[in-house]
């Protein structure tokens, strides 16, 4: 496969919420990921410059219906509990559709900000909800959300960054908590947090970039840790991390592009590896990863919209509020 089936992928995202999808039991078993799924779908469409493929007002209404007034955060589906992950998804979707200033959102903003701030623990980390799970991805999620809302303060970011630095290992990578092994997706969350807070100069970029480029394995795909199988989602986690460090070219683009294209279903949708079941998560990260490659190569082979490696949204959107400097 040498071609990107853009139109098919647009239709794939459009059909995710169709009656046919809703007739399947699996659709309902995935309720707890619905809002996250909408974010992935919206970013996939935005990357293909086809945001209008989804009905904006319906999306807007759905996002607001997921707001959990008791916690102040967004749940993944109406009546579900607020969680930091779905809260970031909601904020991102509202931002991409330029609806953060809608009065219905502005009303809720103080409660949303309070929800996120109260998840920060004394050691600087953030928990995902009040039940206490801590993970560097929740730190990124919180810092990213607050920065989008223009509510990130030095008081919150300083201890968060200190915690992130404790999660770095001798190999240059980062783990989910201090002591944990390096993992490419955690590397993304940590580097992106450092980028947002302007603290990238606190690490040695070459060491981390070398570890990241070692993730490319035969066949061109990327894995998440040494001696693991490649998986398409690392086309995002690794490429965004390398892009943040200005070292995207430390992997082989031809091999990676070929791996990504092979994961496509010609009928639409993209999967973790060739011939596996497609899903919107991998579809999103395949397209976003390809966009980063295009940006690094300064080519327009697939005609994708430039994506911000720190926020995983189009740069045209993030330009409105970013205050970090990319290397």
């Amino acid at each position: 496969m040498t071609q990107l089936f853009k139109q098919k992928h647009v239709e794939y995202v459009q059909n995710l919420n169709s009656q046919i999808s809703q007739d399947s039991y699996e659709y309902w078993l995935l309720e707890h990921l619905r809002l996250n799924g909408i974010y992935w779908g919206v970013v996939a469409l935005a990357t293909m410059d086809n945001l209008k493929a989804l009905p904006e007002n319906e999306v807007f209404d759905f996002v607001l219906s997921c707001w959990d007034s008791r916690s102040g955060g967004f749940g993944a589906f109406p009546r579900h509990d607020g969680h930091i992950l779905s809260t970031l998804s909601a904020i991102q979707v509202l931002l991409i559709y330029n609806r953060l200033d809608d009065p219905k959102v502005v009303d809720k903003k103080p409660a949303i900000v309070k929800f996120i701030k109260e998840l920060q623990l004394e050691n600087g980390s953030f928990q995902g909800d009040r039940f206490g799970e801590v993970d560097t991805r929740f730190i990124y999620t919180a810092i990213s959300a607050l920065s989008i809302l223009g509510e990130l303060t030095e008081e919150m970011s300083r201890p968060a960054v200190d915690f992130i630095l404790l999660c770095q290992n001798f190999d240059g990578g980062f783990g989910m908590v201090p002591g944990a092994e390096s993992h490419a997706a955690q590397v993304f969350t940590c580097l992106a947090t450092l980028a947002i807070t302007g603290q990238l100069d606190r690490i040695k970029p070459e060491k981390t970039a070398a570890w990241l480029s070692d993730r490319q394995v035969e066949g061109g795909g990327l894995n998440g840790r040494p001696e693991k199988l490649p998986d398409l989602c690392y086309s995002w986690w690794v490429m965004s991390s390398l892009s943040i460090l200005g070292k995207a070219h430390w992997v082989d683009f031809t091999g990676l592009i070929s791996f990504i294209l092979k994961c496509q279903d010609p009928n639409g949708g993209i999967s973790d590896r060739a011939d596996n079941e497609t899903d919107v998560y991998h579809t999103c990260f395949a397209l976003a990863g390809l966009s980063l490659i295009e940006m690094s190569q300064k080519l327009k082979e697939f005609g994708l919209v430039p994506i911000d490696p720190v926020y995983c949204m189009p740069t045209s959107v993030t330009r409105k509020f970013t205050n970090y400097t990319q290397q």
Binding site: L33, G175, A180, E181, C233
Partner: peptide, 23 residues
Amino acid sequence: LPWPFPNSSYFSVGLVHAWDYRR
């Protein structure tokens, strides 16, 4: 490891990292 973003077996490469759990 417990990854990725969606906390779901449908999307995860593999969830519980036995060594993380040991720590």
